[in-house]
């Protein structure tokens, strides 16, 4: 179903069984039109503002700005830093969640006592809202004096790390990865469990050890699921905001400013609508580039 059916849709242009000729466009139209509005209107406005001088605090400054906002943006070191930070954040969280998610999925596929409860505990972070997880990690876990990690470090005779001062981006990555690991685990576990047991048994008969079974049977089987994880996570990770908002506010300096936070800061903290909008256009472009490659590669992967 799902992706597969979609792909067949391309070749079998005739309606599949159960389809009627009569168009059902009236049922589809509301969703398509609101999404179109939701996409076009703000997009057009963002584009328009990005060519304007527009500051909420300073109504006198107005009029066509040409490429000024963009010029200002690309010559701003904060912008390039935010671009890099965005990519590092997305990339690292994807690697961590898919990697550990796969290992944990294989682990939770084994029968062991209390497995059901353990699984529920392991997926719990997914239900925690980003603001809470950020605050809990920042204060209860990573606080250099009162945090659990600091105490642990002292207990083994090490100097506690002031995470948000010394490795701020890493700290944010840890928080975000903690939130998304359960999602990857859930999907990959479902995929692992759907693996035909006879396939693994056949591999065992062919002399494959646990590692060989994992590499040659389980991992290829997980391809589709990994694609889904990557796609959904990327959608959300490109726009991580709350975790930064409540922990570092983009700092220290611009160390944890991603594109989302930069635009927010420009537009709503510095009231520079023009500059913020130029950033918005860049964010949209970036998302589109990623979406283009992602949707394409995933559509291909899922063509099974």
């Amino acid at each position: 179903m799902s992706f597969t059916t979609l792909d067949q849709g391309a070749e079998v242009t005739a309606a599949p069984p159960g389809a009627r000729r009569r168009s059902a466009f009236p049922l589809l139209a509301p969703s398509v039109s609101v999404l179109l509005l939701w996409m076009i209107v703000p997009l057009a406005m963002t584009l328009w503002f990005s060519f304007q001088r527009y500051n909420l605090l300073n109504p006198e400054v107005s009029g066509f700005a040409g490429l000024e906002n963009y010029e200002f943006l690309v010559t701003d070191p904060d912008f390039w830093a935010s671009l890099t930070n965005t990519l590092i954040l997305v990339g690292s969280v994807l690697v961590i969640t898919v990697g550990f998610g796969t290992l944990l999925a294989v682990l939770f596929d084994q029968p062991f006592p209390g497995q059901g409860v353990a699984r529920v505990l392991a997926i719990s972070p997914f239900f925690v809202m980003p603001t809470v997880s950020a605050l809990v990690w920042k204060n209860l876990m990573m606080h250099p004096i009162y945090g659990v990690l600091g105490s642990l470090a002292r207990a083994v005779g090490m100097e506690p790390v002031d995470w948000f001062a010394e490795y701020p981006l890493l700290a944010v990555i840890v928080i975000v990865a903690w939130q998304w690991l359960p999602f990857a685990l859930l999907i990959l576990l479902t995929a692992v469990q759907s693996l035909d047991h006879e396939q693994k048994e056949a591999a065992r008969m062919d002399g494959a050890g646990p590692v060989a079974q994992f590499v040659f049977i389980t991992l290829p089987h997980l391809g589709r699921a990994i694609s889904v994880v990557v796609m959904i996570e990327t959608i959300f990770l490109l726009t991580v905001f709350a975790e930064i908002f409540v922990t570092t506010s983009g700092g220290p300096g611009n160390a944890t400013t991603n594109l989302a936070f930069l635009i927010y800061a420009r537009a709503l903290l510095q009231f520079d609508v023009g500059g913020g909008s130029a950033g918005g256009v860049v964010a949209i472009l970036l998302a589109n580039v990623v979406a283009f490659f992602l949707v394409r590669s995933i559509a291909r992967r899922l063509e099974v």
């Binding site: 996409m39 703000p42 963002t46 490109l238 909008s277 918005g280 964010a283």
Partner: peptide, 10 residues
């Protein structure tokens, strides 16, 4: 995929 920040201002 359209990032909310991209359209936050409008």
């Amino acid at each position: 995929m359209l990032p909310p920040v991209g359209v936050l201002v409008p």
